[in-house]
Amino acid sequence: MKCIVIDDEPVARMGMEDLIMDSPNLTFLRAFNSTIGVEEYLKTHEVDIIFLDIEMPVRSGIEFAPLIPPETLLVFTTAYPHYAIESYELDAMDYLLKPISQERFNKTVIKASAYLSLLKNDKYSVENTSEEHIIVRADKRFHKIFYDSITHIEALKDYVIIYTTDERRHITWMNLKNIYLKLPKDQFTRISRSHVVNTKFVTSFDNTSVWIKEMEITLGKSYRDDFFAKHSL
Rank of each mutant, 00 (worst) to 15 (best):
I6C: 12
D7T: 04
P10G: 09
P10W: 02
P10R: 08
V11W: 03
R13C: 11
G15N: 15
M16K: 11
L19R: 09
M21I: 14
D22K: 15
P24R: 10
T27Y: 04
F28C: 06
L29N: 12
A31C: 13
N33A: 07
S34G: 03
K43Y: 00
H45G: 08
H45W: 03
I50D: 07
I50A: 13
L52I: 09
E55V: 14
P57K: 15
G61K: 08
I62M: 15
A65D: 11
L67R: 03
I68E: 01
P69Q: 01
T72W: 12
L73F: 00
V75L: 09
V75A: 14
V75W: 05
T77Y: 01
T78K: 00
A79H: 07
Y80G: 00
Y83V: 07
E86R: 15
E89C: 03
E89T: 02
D91L: 04
D91C: 05
A92G: 05
A92P: 01
M93Y: 06
M93N: 05
L96T: 08
I100Y: 07
I100G: 07
Q102P: 01
Q102W: 04
E103K: 14
A112I: 10
A114C: 00
L116E: 04
S117M: 02
L118N: 07
L118E: 03
L119W: 03
K120L: 09
N121A: 15
Y124H: 10
S125V: 07
N128S: 14
S130C: 13
H133R: 08
H133Y: 14
I134E: 02
K144Q: 15
I150W: 02
I150K: 04
T151I: 08
T151A: 06
E154S: 10
I162C: 06
I162K: 04
Y163L: 01
T164H: 07
T164I: 08
T164Q: 09
H170P: 01
I171D: 04
W173Q: 13
M174I: 15
N175D: 13
I179T: 07
Y180D: 06
Y180V: 02
K182H: 03
L183T: 04
K185E: 11
Q187T: 09
F188C: 07
I191N: 06
S192Y: 08
H195S: 12
T199A: 02
F201E: 09
V202M: 12
S204P: 05
F205P: 02
D206I: 12
T208Q: 06
S209G: 02
V210F: 04
W211S: 07
M215Y: 11
T218K: 05
L219Q: 05
G220Y: 09
R224C: 12
D225G: 09
A229P: 01
A229C: 08
H231D: 00
H231S: 03
S232L: 14
